[in-house]
């Protein structure tokens, strides 16, 4: 047994490592230094629209990661064949196809969430992040790297979406993951049909202290997302010194 361990051949380093430093950077960069929302300020439209609840935001994020990654991959595979004059149209066809695939998949496998999101799923087609990455990266890079870049940007977008949705749902509705099988009711006045972890209606315990608390209705309006994103951009820039000079 010891022999086999010794005889195990050393893995020769491939010419282009699958997850080299550069490749890792393609995924981590959009999460922080080059975040599509807080740094490039792209994709704001959908970030305002879908972030009132966490669960739809998660689904949209997954959909964007999928669309972004595979449209990057396909565009990159065809990058030398795509005529420059019609490249935008070709990119749009690829994106629209993938978004339709997402829509059909949801309709087939999770109809309730399809019902809830149908309009917004279609809007991924016009999400600037996807098209921006195709134009800026995939048209000039190899497939694998473009794929990673797509995943990275999708994740960077999704991360901000979920942070904003978390704040909005918690303070606007007092719940988390509402509408999903793992809905958690955090804070609010319990009634016969719903129980909250922090019950503001109780006569004893924390309730008596918290009875003044009411959900902030502003949080459920799109305007709330506007200034939450604004505050996030502020925090992000003051925390990351690399961003200070970029304006």
């Amino acid at each position: 047994m010891a022999d086999t361990a010794i005889q195990e051949p050393k893995v020769a380093a491939p010419k282009e490592p699958l997850f080299g430093k550069k490749e890792r950077k393609l995924i981590t960069d959009p999460l922080n230094d080059n975040n599509p929302i807080t740094v490039q300020v792209l994709g704001i439209c959908s970030a305002l629209a879908v972030t009132s609840l966490v669960y739809p935001s998660v689904v949209i994020s997954v959909a964007v990661v999928f669309v972004c990654a595979f449209s990057s991959l396909f565009t990159s595979l065809m990058r030398n064949a795509i005529p420059k004059q019609v490249r935008m149209i070709v990119q749009l066809v690829i994106i629209a196809t993938l978004v339709t695939v997402v829509e059909l998949t949801l309709r087939r496998f999770n109809y309730p969430i399809y019902k809830e999101l149908s309009v917004y799923i279609g809007l991924i087609i016009t999400n600037c992040i996807v098209m921006g990455r195709l134009e800026a990266f995939s048209m000039a890079n190899k497939p694998w790297r473009s794929f990673l870049d797509g995943i990275g940007n999708g994740l960077g977008y999704g991360a901000i979406l979920i942070i904003v949705a978390f704040i909005r749902e918690l303070f606007g509705k007092g719940t988390l993951f509402a509408g999903s099988p793992i809905q958690i009711n955090i804070i609010g006045a319990s009634n016969p049909t719903t129980n909250y972890l922090i019950n503001t209606a109780a006569e004893s315990g924390i309730g008596t202290w918290f009875s003044w608390y009411a959900n902030n209705n502003l949080m459920v309006l799109p305007a709330a997302a506007m200034f939450i994103i604004g505050i996030l951009i502020w925090i992000h820039r003051s925390w990351n010194p690399k961003l200070v000079d970029i304006s």
Binding site: S52, G179, T193, T194, N215
Partner: peptide, 14 residues
């Protein structure tokens, strides 16, 4: 309908 306001006709079982 606006989530948290009008949408409560569906979301709020009460």
């Amino acid at each position: 309908e606006t989530p948290g306001l009008g949408a409560e006709i569906k979301d709020n079982p009460a």
